[in-house]
């Protein structure tokens, strides 16, 4: 597939400009929406939508500024700790990026709490950090919320019935790999993930953990191809978040009469009779007519699932 040079350069400039505004000029959470929406508008003119590395990288590089504050009731020192600022990758998981946050606040909490697992809260709700960071922000941040994202840090009363205990990075890895394998079961009956070697799995995990796009995609590419002589995945791996949980359903990327299904079709299958549902992912609302196969190949999180949040 190819597109015209004019298209590429215009697009690249646009992205660069918007990238700047994302965090400096306009600190509202909606900027990314404009950027990706713009991308989709450009895309409409192009018939072939596959193999687009640029959008993969754009999604990969998405970051959110977060301001962590220790819960006032947990401060055991006479000094109030300073807040801790961090740029976190949307595609990562909080337990992978908060070692420094823990270290920063540890000396301000009572000694007996220091051994306990830290957890995070926003607006009175514990953050289910088993979900990728970008998903949590899509679920919890409204259009009027300003960045940085203000998150409260706790050391006591871990909300164990809602939040995963990730005592070690290995446990996050095990959860992540379980999601990735499930996605492959949906796409290729699990044949690609199970035929991979341990080193491939490690490469995916290290690529995500160390934020190395090339390292991750060198392996993930195989998972994101339709296998054999097929042009499409068997089913589209997705989670659609609603009512404090999420829905899953077996949805095929093509209809029985061989038409490409769109996001609209997916939502109609998931919520029959409800025409007005819109979903958000990566901070933007993708157009309803986006083909599912393309959406899955390009806007899936590293766990290979599309994470769609009903707005």
């Amino acid at each position: 597939m190819y597109y015209s040079p004019t298209y590429v350069s215009c697009h690249a400039v646009c992205l660069r400009l918007l990238h700047l505004t994302d965090f400096i000029v306009n600190n509202k959470t909606t900027t990314k929406t404009f950027k990706l929406r713009h991308f989709f508008q450009l895309k409409k003119s192009s018939n072939e939508m596959a193999n687009d590395r640029e959008i993969l990288r754009e999604i990969w590089e998405g970051k959110l500024p977060v301001c962590f504050r220790l819960d006032k009731d947990e401060v055991a020192d006479f000094r109030e700790p300073d807040p801790f600022y961090l740029m976190v990758p949307r595609l990562s998981y909080f337990p992978l990026v908060i070692d420094k946050v823990r270290k920063h606040f540890l000396k301000f909490v009572a000694n007996e709490k220091a051994e306990q697992e830290m957890w995070l809260e926003y607006n009175g709700q514990p953050l289910k950090w088993q979900y990728p960071i970008g998903v949590l922000s899509d679920l919890l941040l409204g259009p009027d919320d300003l960045l940085p994202w203000n998150i409260t840090v706790h050391f006591s009363k871990f909300p164990e019935s809602e939040v995963y205990r990730f005592d070690s990075k290995e446990m996050v890895e095990s959860y992540f790999m379980a999601c990735l394998k499930e996605a492959d079961v949906l796409k290729h009956r699990g044949q690609i993930a199970s035929s991979m070697q341990k080193k491939d799995h490690n490469q995916l995990w290290l690529g995500l953990q160390n934020e190395k796009f090339d390292q991750f995609w060198a392996v993930n590419r195989k998972l994101m191809e339709a296998s054999g002589d097929q042009d499409y995945f068997k089913y589209i791996p997705f989670r659609c978040y609603i009512d404090d949980g999420y829905r899953q359903k077996l949805v095929k990327p093509i209809s029985d009469d061989n038409h490409k299904k769109t996001l609209q079709d997916l939502l109609e299958e998931l919520f029959p009779g409800n025409k007005n549902i819109k979903v958000k992912t990566h901070g933007m609302i993708p157009p309803m007519e986006t083909p599912l196969q393309w959406l899955s190949e390009h806007l899936s999180y590293p766990d290979n699932f599309l994470h769609l949040c009903v707005v």
């Binding site: 088993q130 019935s161 205990r165 095990s174 959860y175 949980g245 999420y246």
Partner: peptide, 12 residues
């Protein structure tokens, strides 16, 4: 044995 989301309750 891993912690996973309950297929209905979506909790660990």
């Amino acid at each position: 044995i891993t912690q996973m989301d309950h297929p209905v309750l979506r909790r660990p």
